[in-house]
Each structure stands twice: as C-alpha cells, then as structure tokens.
Write a protein that binds this DNA or RNA. Structure first.
Lengths: 191, 191
DNA sequence: TGCCCGAGCCTAAAGACTTTAGGCAAAAGA
DNA sequence: TCTTTTGCCTAAAGTCTTTAGGCTCGGGCA
C-alpha cells in the first residue's frame, strides 16, 4: 500500500510539531500522524515508543528551537536590550508556534528535563542578568521571576485571558518590560 | 444494579474536581467518574452534555473557589499585606488542589469566561492596587503583570521547573513578592 | 391505596485512539 | 544473486466518548 514511505523518529517528531501548531498540542495523536503519512497506525510504533514518547520528543524539539532563537537574540546584546530581546523570543515563538510552545511546557521526567535544552534557557537568563548588578542568591530569584513573567504573560495572553480588558496587550507588554528592567536595576536588598 | 444513586450535575462536578486533584485534570474522564459512582457511563450523559462540558464545569467551580479564597484573604488587608495574601491564595490553592488549579486554566469560550468568576479575580487584583498609587492605564498593566507572575510562578513551580536549582523556592517566593511590592511602589512612568 | 408517568439508570452499539504481536516484502549488504 | 534486515501491514484487544432507545423505581394524583 505504501511501501517504504521513509518514516523516521525525526520526521515523525517534526510532523508532530507541525500538527501541534495546527490543532493544538493536546490534540496531537499517533493516529492523525499516521494518517498524514498515509500509513497504518501500528507502523509508527517502530519509530516512537508510544504517544507519551512522541509528545516528549516534540517538547524537546520545541525547547531546542526556543533555545536557539534565544541564543541568537541574545548575541551582542546586553542590559535592557537583551531583556527585551529574550522576552520577545518567547512571545513571538508562542504566537508563531502555539502548539510547539505548549509542547515546551510538557512535563518531562527529571532525567529527560536535565538533558534537555531547558538548562540552556536557565543559563541564558542568568547570562542576561550579567547586565544588571545582582549577586548570587538574588540572581536565582531574578531568573525565576523572569521565567515566571515571560511564561505567565505569554500563556495568559495566548489563552485569551487579556482579551476582554481595554488597553491592548502590546502596550502592556512593553510597559511590563520597562518595569522589569527598572526592577532589576534597583532590586530590593534582602530584609 | 445501582437504582437511583442520585446523580446530579453538581455532584458530578464536585467528584470531577476531586478526581482532578487525584489524577490530574487532563486525566479526568467521564468513564472514571462513572466508575466511582458505580454507574454505567451512559448515565452521566443525562447530567452532563459531554466531556468538555464536564471539564468546563470543573473549571468554573475552581474559579469560584479560588475567587472566594481570594476575597477572604483580601478582606481587611491593604498594600503589601494584601499583595502577599493574594499571591499566597493562588500558590496554596495550587498546592492543595493541583487538579482544580489546572482546571482553572482550562480555556473557556468567551461567553462562559465572561460569566465566570474570572472577572472577580480581575476586579480583586485591581482592588489590591488601590493600596499603590497607579492611575488608569498603568493599573491595567500592573494587573496583568501580577496575574502573569502569580500564574507563571505557580505553574512553573508545580511543574517542577524550579526543582533543580539551588535556593529553595520558599525563599524566592518571598523575595519575588518583596520585589513586586517595591516595583508597584515605584512604578516607572511611561516614557 | 393503587395507578401512572416521568425521571434516572441501563443495554446496545458505533466510532476513535492506543498499543502489542506476528507476518510479508522491499531494500541493503555480501 | 542471495540473504538478512528493516519497514510497513494485518489482526486484535482494551479504553474512552457519545447517541439511541428501553425498563423501572418513586412520587404525585385520584
């Protein structure tokens, strides 16, 4: 029927990512993927352990892509410039690839997470903070705060959570980044 | 087999919420619910339109509970006190009821969302800001920032995203709240 | 008290997705 | 060319969702 279509874990993962962007990460299904390759469902199970495995791979792909973009954006920038650039990487990625962005939030088991590009993200955020004057304990706090704001804002915005109130989210986004920059420059000392 | 068990949309919703806390919101299934009531699956469909409807109801329940807690916490507090109280409501709720918290993030269609307790949340956050000196456009920006931080922090923490780095999240949480308080007190003016 | 009717739960059934086991044929290597 | 590997297939069982239609329990009516 479809002799040697050339299935690959790679290709399946990529196709899965595209599928996620089209129908949502939650709706990514082994069956639908098989359909797209015009192949029987069971055939996919030689390349992917199971549905969870597939999703994990998509998540890892998304994390990589995101980290790559972040690295690009950060190159040659510092201070607020870098802050804004990094923030926009997340936001733009989420808009361009909602399914992949959702995938990047997929909960990975500890070992997988440790081997993922997730660590690059943390490192980059920390690098960004070199433009501000924070010593170690506070640096970690700041990394976590930035991560929270980026992820929180983007996911609420994507979910339509801001769509009912008045000022457009573009304005808010830039004011929030201004505020974060100001905050990092005058980070309050421990009590 | 089980004549008149006394199914109700109410009871199903509540049981669904408990189920969510036990197995995760995504894993809430009409079948499992039927099993718990020792009733055939089809019987639930007289009380709940479908799986999506069930999840929507659980989401609405969670939003209500959360709003009630927030209202309690905010009563008689102002300024940083109120900020910390509200923040902890979200965080504690997420810890006590992870499934319900996830449910509260369930994407509702616009009309449902407009009629949900979600609006109370926005109002309360705005009320909280009365303790700080922000005029209208900035108030909305601040509401959105707070929402982002609370949701972002809590969801990353729950997802284990902070669990690999050193300082404990308790410390970070309180430092983040300090920082937010400081930020709100000295909110940077528009450029 | 007895009857009746509707609400409440059931059986049946079809459709979709997941996952495993085992088979056949095409591609790759000797 | 022959053989081995590998890739996709058939078959099958299990789970969940959802709809259609039936039986009966329980409360209201006479």
């Amino acid at each position: 029927m479809a002799p040697r279509v050339g299935l690959t874990t790679e290709r399946l993962t990529r196709a899965g990512a595209e599928l996620a962007d089209e129908v949502g990460f939650e709706q990514v299904t082994v069956s639908e993927l098989a359909r797209r390759f015009d192949v029987k469902v069971a055939s996919l199970y030689s390349h992917v352990k199971n549905s969870h495995d597939l999703k994990t791979r998509i998540a890892l792909l998304a994390l990589e892509e995101l980290a790559d973009r972040a690295a690009d954006a950060l190159a040659g920038r510092a201070g607020k410039d870098a802050l804004v650039a990094l923030a926009n990487v997340y936001r733009d990625y989420a808009r361009e690839h909602p399914g992949r962005y959702a995938a990047a939030q997929f909960r990975l088991d500890p070992e997988t997470a440790a081997a993922s590009a997730g660590v690059r993200h943390a490192r980059m955020t920390r690098a960004l903070l070199r433009g501000y004057d924070l010593d170690e304990p506070d640096q970690t706090h700041a990394v976590r705060l930035l991560g929270s704001v980026f992820h929180g804002y983007v996911s609420i915005e994507m979910g339509g959570g801001f769509s009912h109130s008045a000022p457009d989210t573009e304005e808010t986004w830039s004011r929030v980044l201004d505020a974060l920059d100001a905050l990092l420059r005058t980070w309050p000392p421990a009590p």
